[in-house]
Simulated scan of single mutants.
Amino acid sequence: MRRLAARLGLPLMIVVAGCAPAGTGPTGPLPSDQDQDQDQDPFDRRATAVAEGWRPGPGWSTGYIPLQDPTLLIGEADFTPATQTAFQAGWYRKPADLPARQPDSGTIRFPDGELRVPLVDADEAFRTLTNGVEPPSCPGAKKPEVPPPPAPGGDPDGTVSSRPQGECVALTISKVELGTAPLHTNRGEAQVPAWLFTVEEIGAVVATTAVAPQAVGRVPDPVVPSDSAPEGLVAAQNIIEVDGTRLAFRLGVGSCDSEITPLVQEREDLVVVGGSVVRSTDVCDAMLKLEEVEVTLKEPLGTRPVLDALTGAPLRVGGN
């Protein structure tokens, strides 16, 4: 599976990733009707209950349900602090020559088939790109200038920033065309019709999916197991990356939690993830911290959904 990228601002508090240790749950495909016994560990019991409660309906296997932000970066971008801020905020100048023709229907190509869907025009895609807001009054991007020699008494190393971090930039779109973009969906990574905006200041393409709203399915409501969650179980917040058998995700933990461990139960039709922590007995604030962790699956994720062991909800790539 290709590496997935999403448009999101990384949380301020992220710590070093961990790996799932042996004994954190089954790592091979398991039959959905596996017998339960009292010796099964608490996470396995919880994950099994989540898996057996997953009943997404027929639309999950036949329709289109995006599990990623509709706007994503294609390729590598040459960001500065100012253009990174503008990209995350959706600050773009509207091009005067947006394609005006309403496009014909397009085809979503899933690993397991194709789906013909109606599309939106470039103007509606641009509104999605900008989150429907106008950019602030920015003077526009400027080419970085060669800094002058440092003045006497300046910084010891003589470095000068050519673009202050707080500078306001509205991004310029130099080209707009209809194409496709890779997107994580209910049926794995799909090639989805998208409007491709070439952004001058970052030297990259920003894609916004072109599928009309009436063709987009709804994420099914999760079924939370009736039994209490195991002590120390924490929820998975979102997927960071899927790369072959490597699955990286974020856990929501307390700022004073320790021994943070990713947990996984892998089945033929889905994967359940979560984490365990040791709670502090000292006085601590209630601030949530997002910690990056990863696990290695026995088989590539493919079209299997990834469910959170605490809530039963399917995880999205990038922001929740």
Rank of each mutant, 00 (worst) to 15 (best):
G57M: 13
A6C: 12
A22T: 11
A47T: 07
G9E: 15
P70H: 11
P135L: 10
V146W: 02
L115S: 04
L72W: 04
A22F: 05
E114V: 12
P147R: 03
L67I: 08
V176Y: 02
L251G: 05
V192A: 06
A47H: 04
L307Q: 04
V273A: 01
W91Y: 14
K298F: 14
V234P: 01
G302F: 06
V169G: 12
T128K: 08
E189L: 03
D157F: 10
R109L: 13
V295R: 02
D121S: 06
D121H: 07
Q265P: 00
P225S: 05
F126V: 12
P262L: 09
R45L: 13
Q40D: 14
E52M: 02
V16H: 07
E241T: 14
P29L: 02
P70D: 13
V146R: 11
G312T: 11
I74G: 02
D121F: 01
D37P: 00
D41K: 00
A286G: 08
V146D: 11
T303Y: 01
A212L: 04
E200P: 00
S137Q: 13
V50W: 02
T303H: 00
S280F: 00
V206R: 05
V192M: 03
G254K: 04
L297N: 05
T71Q: 07
E231Y: 00
V317R: 00
R93N: 15
V15W: 03
G59T: 12
G244K: 05
A215M: 04
G63V: 02
G53F: 05
G302R: 05
P136G: 14
S174A: 10
G254C: 05
Q237E: 13
D221G: 07
G113E: 09
V50H: 03
G217A: 09
S162C: 06
A125W: 01
F110Y: 08
T281R: 13
D269Q: 06
V169E: 13
V277W: 09
C256H: 07
G179A: 11
V306D: 11
P139Y: 00
R304W: 03
D78A: 11
V283N: 01
Q84I: 03
V234R: 10
D33M: 05
G23I: 06
D282E: 15
P148N: 07
A194Y: 08
V205G: 05
E201D: 14
R55S: 14
V206A: 09
R45F: 02
R163Q: 15
L129W: 09
L129Q: 07
T85I: 12
L171S: 08
F110S: 09
H184K: 07
V192G: 07
S105L: 01
G90M: 09
P58D: 10
V234W: 01
Q84S: 13
L72E: 07
L10E: 14
S105A: 14
L115C: 06
R250C: 11
V273Q: 00
V120A: 01
A6Q: 11
P81A: 10
T180K: 12
